[in-house]
Design a binder for these strands. Structure first.
Length: 640
DNA sequence: ACGATAGGACGTTAGGCCGG
DNA sequence: CCGGCCTAACGTCCTATCGT
């Protein structure tokens, strides 16, 4: 049930079961009486306590939504009406305390509930909480292989270097024996006679080399993949040279296809380097790549299945993979235990991060525009992740009007929805994700999209607003230059202790201002074309202002989200939990099971369900309808 | 109000490692 | 089996705070 549909009676029941009052049932009765005789008429003048049976009262209170209650006013209403009744001689003042106490405890309890802030959001505090630093430098699990023992490229004998080059060229498609331009149907510029010529050429190729369909298929690999493989090779050679006393001249790329050596290397990684079996799997992957490359000529199948070496390596790989899958739950457990928080705690984190958007810092100084915008952005991202744990990739791809749209529900209320179509070349099936976001996010997204974000982009209107936004003053340029000149001539303020530090600091300040001035045209252009909901603010690299968080910048989303959660959890629970965006998915799926809400709808929301095609509107609707049925409170404890 | 200073935050890069 | 997410480390700049 969505928080906004909570009714008064179900909260009363829950309150009566709380530790504080569960052993004194009469308090619950007092509360009902207080409502019946001294509260409800304030909200509904037609309510007649004297003609209402207990059963009717329950029904009435079940229709009365908490959101329409005014918790702050309840005691005042009660006092006023009760005192009036005393004055009228209807009731004795000595009984007041019974009912007032019950009511007071109920109101107090309501305010302590997690959903209270959602139903009755407090206004932003003027002062942000004190800064909490939670940057912990974790010692690396093991030293980097590259530094420690890997074989250096510079020491590679020429023959080996040539082997490596061949290997790379092969997977870049440069050594493939067959021309890849099979039938060039899309090219209209060729003439019929040119095509005849091409056909003849192709026939000759096929005669010489056999048909390409009976040859192994070379899927071109990304450069990053080659680099990854190469590192493994360097480590392998490093192991041979530094630990197994091989001479560099002995080294040969084909040694990696020697199962005896490779198995030994994998064991060494596990025992000496304390790697997981995952690294063994990766070693074999690189080895398979080498084996395929050097047996290409001998194979006449699409997948090298006629090459025993390749098959043997594949078997070894699946053996390691199986081992890794067995170990994985324990490894995950270990990685996860320092990060885990409950969903309730995550909700408190959101509230904390909201208070960090205050216009003044804890010390009382006004904070500058970019800081407040920054805190808003982090708060909103974390809030989305807590209440709709989507992938961070989806988060940074949001574009208002394209991938993030505002929709009207059947009952007339507005909410936001996400509609993501992945890039065609990346996904040939044109998959679409379309899902509603919980309405708890609507007000915040409104605020961000209509007020904060436009204001931030408008900061680039002219140079003075841009400098003000970044906490710089144009007049400081001259001042700093003067101070620098003076310092170089030995004229220094009396307080200066270290001349070098003074000059370095002044130079830095000057550089900071100048770099903001220099990039002005660039950031103005950035802001003009910026369409992403979230974007970089360019604190230490001003030219990055209003740049989206692209693939290249993805790590930023990860690091600032986990840093923000780390700080918040330290401030709130004195425990640093550096939750990465993916962790919110774990927390969410745990919560939805704990409180017994709709698992399927949650899975669909976070993108684990079947993704539906753009053309099948009916399917989209059914998915959307499935989600929306419980999107507004999948995290809530179920009330009666 | 300003300088000194320490510690921290954001952005970038390279390399490790995971998810599907 | 691959692409790309995640982490560590570092550079530049910011902020809080204290002394004068």
């Amino acid at each position: 049930m969505a928080t906004h549909n909570f009714n008064v009676y179900s909260t009363m029941i829950n309150w009566s079961k709380s530790d504080e009052v569960k052993n004194t049932p009469q308090i619950f009765k007092h509360l009902k009486t207080a409502f019946k005789y001294w509260i409800l008429q304030e909200f509904d003048s037609h309510f007649n306590p004297n003609s209402t049976t207990p059963k009717q009262l329950e029904t009435y209170l079940r229709k009365f939504l908490v959101i329409n209650l005014n918790p702050d006013a309840l005691l005042e209403i009660f006092d006023r009406r009760f005192d009036q009744a005393v004055a009228n001689g209807l009731v004795s003042s000595t009984t007041k305390g019974n009912y007032r106490s019950a009511l007071g405890r109920y109101v107090q309890w309501i305010k302590e509930q997690l959903w209270y802030e959602e139903l009755f959001p407090s206004s932003l505090p003027v002062y942000a909480p004190p800064l909490v630093s939670a940057s912990q430098k974790k010692p690396p699990l093991r030293s980097k292989a590259e530094k420690e023992y890997a074989f250096k490229d510079a020491n590679m004998p020429l023959a080996l270097q040539q082997n490596m080059d061949f290997w790379r060229s092969f997977w870049q498609g440069k050594v493939v024996l067959f021309t890849q331009n099979k039938v060039d149907a899309g090219n209209e510029k060729t003439t019929a006679s040119q095509r005849r010529q091409q056909r003849e050429q192709r026939r000759q190729e096929l005669t010489a080399k056999g048909t390409e369909y009976s040859r192994p298929q070379v899927n071109i690999i990304a450069n990053s993949t080659y680099k990854r493989y190469k590192k493994i090779v360097n480590c392998f050679f490093g192991w041979l040279v530094h630990f197994e006393e091989y001479h560099p001249d002995e080294l040969n790329l084909l040694m990696l296809t020697d199962i005896v050596l490779i198995e030994e290397f994998c064991v060494w990684l596990l025992t000496e380097r304390k790697c997981t079996t995952s690294s063994s799997v990766k070693v074999i992957q690189a080895v398979i790549s080498i084996a395929k490359c050097f047996t290409y000529e001998q194979s006449s199948t699409r997948d090298w299945s006629d090459i025993p070496l390749v098959q043997q390596l594949k078997n070894l790989q699946s053996h390691y993979l199986e081992q890794y899958k067995q170990q994985k739950p324990q490894l995950d457990q270990k990685r996860w235990e320092n990060k885990e928080i409950t969903h309730e705690q995550a909700q408190l984190v959101v509230q904390y991060l909201r208070s960090c958007c205050a216009e003044r810092s804890n010390s009382g100084t006004l904070r500058t525009g970019n800081k407040i915008v920054w805190n808003w952005q982090v708060y909103l991202m974390v809030k989305i992740l807590v209440y709709a744990p989507i992938r961070q990739e989806e988060l940074r791809k949001l574009i208002f009007g394209k991938t993030l749209i505002k929709v009207k529900d059947n009952n007339g209320t507005f909410r936001y929805a996400v509609k993501l179509k992945e890039h065609k070349t990346f996904n040939q099936t044109h998959k679409v994700r379309f899902y509603p976001l919980p309405s708890i996010l609507t007000a915040d997204l409104d605020m961000w999209l209509q007020v904060i974000r436009p204001k931030a982009l408008l900061a680039t209107k002219d140079l003075s607003t841009w400098l003000a936004f970044t906490n710089k003053k144009l007049t400081d340029v001259e001042k700093l230059q003067q101070q620098l000149e003076d310092a170089q001539q030995g004229i220094l303020p009396a307080s200066v202790k270290n001349v070098d530090n003074y000059i370095t600091e002044k130079k830095r300040e000057l550089r900071a201002i100048n770099s903001c001035i220099e990039v002005f045209e660039k950031v103005k252009e950035n802001a003009a074309v910026c369409e992403n909901v979230f974007f970089s603010l360019g604190f230490s690299t001003p030219k990055s202002f209003a740049q989206p968080y692209t693939d290249q910048r993805v790590h930023n989303v990860t690091s600032f989200v986990s840093a923000a959660v780390g700080r918040a959890t330290k401030a709130l629970f004195n425990k640093e939990c550096f939750l990465n965006p993916h962790g919110f998915r774990n927390i969410g799926s745990k919560q939805v099971r704990k409180v017994g809400n709709d698992k399927a709808a949650f899975s669909a929301l976070v993108g684990h369900s079947l993704e539906v095609d753009d053309d099948y509107a009916a399917q989209i609707t059914s998915d959307y309808e499935l989600i929306i049925a419980s999107v507004d409170g999948w995290w809530c404890v179920k009330y009666e």
